[in-house]
Design a protein around this nucleic acid. Structure first.
Lengths: 235, 235
DNA sequence: AGGAATTTGTGCGTATGTATC
DNA sequence: AGATACATACGCACAAATTCC
């Protein structure tokens, strides 16, 4: 029995449009076609498209003006609890993208905190960029029991949609520990920093809705190009 | 010519419900009637009510659970935003103390972001410890208009007690930017690190209840002894 | 200046999907 | 397994804001 359970249409549409913006196909300031035309082209109802556009607006990538149109605004993508913890360019903002380097099923590292019952884990290594410039290296660990096999193709744009819909995992709480560390020995040649260099370092532990450890990650970021931002409170 | 143009229904509904919650007519944890029943009672369409409920949820006063119901969440104010941001020993925890080094009224530094209208500011420099061991240097700036004179004796252990009771200042939101920097040139001889050494660095901007910039601080911490911790989410 | 055309916002009703109890 | 309740999706009509002739 196959469990398909596709994402809601309005999310498919909003992610597609966000990718279009991120890829530069929709330039900053560009005006989208009228909603009714777009909806017809995409084969969805106007209300569905409007919900997608409202999502994109909430992420700060779109400005919607009654009587005028929908305008692309290049800004950082924001979602859920992760809105409060993110890497930004030193001047603020930056459009984030990520590239998966490898996905492996390995024994858990001894120095990692608990993130599930299994003795093995899935290790995902990613290169992270802001506005197209490399700014961080990232290693994410998921418990081996979550799934037998994960391939790079499973991880499209949004890691958290993969968690949510492929693993049934909803991140309910995160704790970040920020400090200073040396770049790891797997730093790719493409990166502008070398193994051993001192950089900013973030260790994250995530918990699922039942408050059980579910994810562990470490991020090494270039403090000359990016800063780590936490926000809390109103507005 | 009078322009009446009543507010949209969904806003009228959400404001009415928010007043009900604020007045205590809807207790914390209370479950609202099913959406169809409420919509009928209020004389609006289900979609309109749902839009109102989504607004209230966005304000944090309501939790919407598919298949279960809509639940009132009475959270007047987050009383301690600082609970989520703190320095800890590497092994976790540690009892925090602070020692005021100096308090001066000076022209604001050029590289500081906005923290009030005045051209001068109060600069507080502190040594911070965990379990008695020095772990950080801190510099806090308050707007000069807050008060004419601040002496070291005004600042006992709790800086936020001083803000609250002496200045009438309630911190409603904070943003932290974390990275790597060099120890400043005013590093006291008593500290175990020297000026110029690379350490962890936090810049904090705080806002008062009116969302106006109110405080600015920078903290240099020893990454070999302490880590900066952010928490977000349930639990 | 003004009015028509365009475009997004609001509101309604209904059918179906999905999670919870 | 069935009932309940919220989520998604569709389509339509009209209002409000902007733009353009």
């Amino acid at each position: 029995m196959v469990k398909t359970s596709a994402l809601p249409k309005y999310i498919q549409v909003s992610e597609m449009l966000i990718r279009e913006i991120a890829a530069g196909h929709l330039a900053d300031g560009a005006r989208l076609p009228p909603e009714r035309d777009m909806a017809e082209d995409l084969g969805v109802a106007v209300g569905t498209l409007r919900k997608a556009l409202a999502d994109i607006e909430a992420k700060g990538l779109l400005e919607r003006l009654q009587g005028s149109g929908n305008y692309v605004r290049h800004r950082p993508v924001v979602n859920s609890v992760y809105a409060f913890f993110r890497l930004e360019l030193l001047r603020g903002g930056g459009l984030p993208t990520a590239q998966v380097l490898s996905v492996d099923r390995l024994a858990k590292p001894a120095d990692a905190p608990d993130f599930g019952p299994d003795t093995q884990g899935h290790r995902i290594r990613r290169l992270r960029s802001l506005d197209g410039g490399l700014i961080a290296l990232e290693e994410i660990w998921l418990d081996g029991g979550q799934r037998n096999v994960i391939g790079p193709d499973d991880l499209s744009e949004s890691l958290y949609h993969f968690y949510r819909h492929q693993l049934g995992l909803v991140i309910a709480a995160v704790e970040d520990r920020i400090g200073v560390a040396a770049m790891p020995d797997w730093t790719p040649a493409a990166f502008h920093l070398r193994a051993g260099q001192t950089v900013g370092y973030v260790e994250r532990s995530s918990r699922n809705a039942a408050h059980e450890p579910a994810e562990f990650s470490r991020t090494w970021f270039d403090p000359a190009r990016a800063t780590y931002v936490s926000r809390m409170g109103k507005g």
